[in-house]
């Protein structure tokens, strides 16, 4: 059984936001909302500064608090790839999942349900990469099965220094950033 995850090379990412635009186009994300976005982390003191650009989205956590707090089961872990999804017809719009996510990855769709990144599961089921990964002009994004030790994502994590966002939140996120 696959367990999908993403690896993003911060040394290659230039913050062009192509991933954000591709997601909006592919998923018809409503105006004013984002399923993914670009973060910038500035570290150090002048003049020794280091800027890290991070393409961020739902981390499809192994311990997803949005799933445990959902009163109807709308937020669930999908069988295919253990991707965290929202069943629109079960969501009552209570917003508990918005409050439970340490990454603030969710928003309320104008149609009333909680919405967020799906890892473009509709594309992945057809053997395609998520839209954000497929358009990255610097090829900084990788998508694959974390449980397969021979997958590209597993090999990158095994061989390169990396970090995840807010590890102390204890959610075991599945997006890894290469340093």
């Amino acid at each position: 059984m696959a367990r999908f995850g993403m690896v993003i090379d911060t040394r290659k990412c230039v913050g062009c936001m192509d991933c954000v635009i591709a997601c909006k186009t592919e998923n018809d994300v409503p105006d004013g909302h984002c399923r993914d976005w670009i973060g910038q982390r500035l570290q150090g003191t002048m003049p020794d500064l280091r800027l890290t650009i991070t393409s961020e989205r739902c981390n499809h956590c192994d311990r997803p608090p949005c799933v445990t707090c959902c009163p109807t089961g709308a937020s669930h872990v999908h069988d295919f790839g253990k991707v965290v999804l929202v069943d629109h017809d079960k969501c009552i719009g209570c917003k508990a999942c918005l409050a439970a996510c340490p990454y603030d990855a969710r928003f309320v769709h104008p149609d009333g349900y909680a919405d967020k990144c799906t890892f473009c599961i509709h594309r992945v089921e057809k053997g395609l990469a998520p839209a954000c990964v497929s358009v990255c002009p610097t090829h900084s994004m990788y998508f694959g099965d974390l449980d397969d030790p021979d997958s590209e994502v597993s090999r990158l994590i095994a061989s390169r220094r990396h970090f995840v966002l807010k590890p102390d939140a204890g959610t075991q996120p599945r997006i890894f950033y290469l340093e």
Binding site: P71, T72, A74, D89, K90, C91, I92, G93, C94, K95, V108, D111, G112, Y113
Partner: peptide
């Protein structure tokens, strides 16, 4: 407060 009011019965 619910954003998807018609689906409240799902609860």
């Amino acid at each position: 407060d619910l954003e998807h009011k018609l689906y409240v019965w799902r609860m």
